[in-house]
């Protein structure tokens, strides 16, 4: 009996080793005009130019499924993806690497529980500039920059998208069918997000509202799984 267990144990372990070349990380990138985003770089945009100084967003509650069956999640709940700190763009999947799944789900943003639980540390620490101070709640998605088309002071635009209260709940759930043989890399297409978004009319969204809710839905349409 003991012998069988040992064999089984070895077998299982061996299998894990064998399958360890499966997906190991989820990464988040952003592109503009088909190029990889570089912060503080001037991009030609039609007749005008645009530059981005800040891009940060929260990804939370990443879950993996095989068809309808829940397979696993990552120990950590919230990840702040900050494009000024490229290391944050990579989420390692230690606990998930060796299981089979064909669907990944995650939130763009933080959930309502984390928005009402007081002072937090780690990725939710307010020092990251992703907590509204004059009101409660996290900014789920922050995009800042400047473009001559904006009639604002210094031609700046500020999109601070968040809000956890109905009806302006801006957290969005994303679902992707995946092929688990490769790393998962997601891309946010800023040309799509900003071109549909007429900068000369709308350049400041800084509190939860109908506008921020629509913007949060548009972000979802601009995130794709890179092939």
């Amino acid at each position: 009996m003991k012998f069988v267990t040992v064999i089984l144990f070895l077998f299982v372990n061996f299998n894990i080793v064998l399958s360890q070349d499966k997906t190991k990380a989820v990464s988040f990138n952003a592109s503009i005009n088909g190029e990889k985003l570089q912060l503080d770089y001037n991009y030609a945009f039609g007749d005008d130019s645009i530059s981005f100084s800040n891009l940060k967003f929260y990804i939370s509650d990443i879950k993996f499924y095989r068809d309808e069956e829940f397979i696993g999640s990552i120990g950590k709940k919230n990840f702040l993806i900050d494009f000024s700190q490229p290391l944050t763009q990579l989420i390692l999947l230690d606990s998930i690497s060796n299981v089979h799944y064909n669907r990944i789900e995650f939130n763009l943003g933080t959930d309502s529980l984390d928005n009402v639980s007081g002072a937090m540390s780690g990725d939710l620490d307010p020092i990251h500039g992703m907590y509204w101070t004059w009101q409660s709640g996290y900014i789920n998605f922050k995009l800042e920059g400047s473009s001559k088309v904006c009639p604002s002071r210094n031609h700046e635009f500020n999109f601070h998208i968040g809000g956890y209260l109905y009806p302006f709940t801006s957290m969005q759930r994303l679902v992707f069918e995946v092929n688990q043989s490769s790393d998962l890399s997601f891309n946010l297409d800023l040309s799509k997000l900003i071109s549909i978004h007429h900068l000369q009319n709308e350049y400041n969204i800084m509190s939860p509202s109908e506008k921020s809710l629509l913007f949060s839905k548009r972000i979802v349409d601009c995130i794709n799984l890179s092939k």
């Binding site: 928005n115 009402v116 639980s117 007081g118 002072a119 307010p126 907590y131 101070t133 004059w134 009101q135 409660s136 709640g137």
Partner: peptide, 16 residues
């Protein structure tokens, strides 16, 4: 009622 928790209230005056 802009603030939902006493812990985070102090962020408001500190930053205002």
């Amino acid at each position: 009622g802009a603030i939902n928790h006493l812990d985070v209230q102090a962020l408001a005056p500190i930053s205002h």
